[in-house]
């Protein structure tokens, strides 16, 4: 286990090293292109190490617009993006996994075709356009759900964790549950729009993995033993069909994040997408390397965490603990 962890962390370090080089390159290019600070003639290697030192001491510079530290601002915004992704993921898992399992079980039937049609439609709808159409909804159905911003402006929520769902529950008892429900109401529409894509993706993955499992030899053996279909599906197939979806979905994480960023811009949510977009529009280019480091840092950590979890929960993956490669 220890050697496995060391190998993973080794990979993480190399990738993080490449990413900091990219961020450094962006930072220097911005300095040269836009001349925000007087250039100090110095060796690039020395400059890189001082940049790295700044990253380690959690200082990515200050915004040129409001003089706020970039890292703290970025992390706060990123927390709200993550909240959106998480709610959408939860939402779409509840809908998509049963659909995908059904499609995989009844392959090449009318039910399968109907579910896959829904999945293709979900993939084909451009996310930002669905967002624009969803912003229109209040004018059609009346003001059921709010479509602007993270929360109503009446609530003043101090930033503790950055995750507003948690902050509204524990930090501000004076609002009771009203602030929490307000936040939930503001999240529903963006999360629903984001889950269009996620549902399509999860249905596809679940169907594929379920089909593969149902074709495998141990399921045939279980049939031959005379087990009932329900018992086979729930006791044997599900355990083996669901775990392979997680690493597949992990590969889609950066796509999901870029869709989430687009949706934030459409719905005017205060997330990292809106932050970067507004910073670029107003010429505060230093937000770019900071945002990049935050997002990619998260994706890296998340990938490693997923891999470790997979090794723990899935016996097939546990082989990689011992293998050399």
């Amino acid at each position: 286990m220890l050697s496995f962890l060391i190998r993973r962390l080794n990979l993480l370090l190399i990738t993080a090293f490449i990413l900091t080089i990219i961020a450094f390159a962006i930072d220097r290019t911005i300095l040269v292109h836009h001349q925000t600070q007087p250039l100090v003639q110095q060796d690039y290697v020395l400059q890189y190490f001082s940049y790295l030192w700044h990253i380690f001491s959690a200082d990515l510079g200050h915004s040129a617009l409001d003089q706020q530290p970039l890292l703290q601002r970025g992390l706060t915004f990123f927390a709200s993006t993550l909240e959106l992704c998480f709610v959408a993921l939860l939402f779409s898992c509840i809908i998509a996994i049963p659909l995908g399992l059904l499609a995989g079980l009844f392959r090449n039937t009318k039910l399968d075709y109907a579910i896959m049609t829904v999945a293709i439609i979900g993939l084909a709808l451009p996310v930002f356009w669905v967002g624009v159409m969803a912003v229109l909804l209040p004018s059609v159905w009346g003001d059921i759900l709010p479509v602007d911003g993270n929360m109503s402006l009446v609530y003043d929520i101090p930033v503790v964790t950055g995750f507003l769902l948690i902050d509204t529950l524990f930090v501000t008892p004076e609002y009771g549950l009203f602030a929490f429900f307000d936040r939930v109401a503001h999240l529903i529409l963006p999360a629903a729009v984001l889950s269009f894509f996620l549902i399509a993706e999860i249905v596809r993955l679940t169907r594929h993995s379920m089909t593969m499992v149902m074709r495998s030899n141990y399921i045939q053996t279980a049939y031959a033993k005379g087990f009932s279909r329900t018992k086979i599906v729930f006791k044997h197939a599900l355990n083996n069909a669901l775990p392979p979806i997680i690493p597949q979905l992990r590969l889609q994480l950066s796509t999901i994040l870029s869709f989430a960023m687009t949706i934030e811009i459409v719905f005017n949510l205060n997330g990292i997408g809106t932050w970067l977009f507004n910073s670029l529009k107003t010429g505060d280019y230093h937000a770019l390397p900071a945002g990049m480091l935050i997002i990619t840092g998260f994706i890296l950590m998340f990938s490693i965490a997923i891999e470790i979890i997979m090794v723990i929960i899935s016996p097939i993956r546990r082989g990689s603990l011992y293998a050399d490669k």
Binding site: I14, L19, I22, T29, I30, S254, S258, L276, M292, I295
Partner: peptide, 22 residues
């Protein structure tokens, strides 16, 4: 392999934004 791992971690919208900034 490592270079790809690093590049894959950047969401496509973000890398498009970076290139367009330049």
């Amino acid at each position: 392999h490592h270079l790809l791992d690093a590049l894959l971690a950047i969401p496509s919208l973000l890398s498009a934004l970076i290139l367009i900034t330049f």
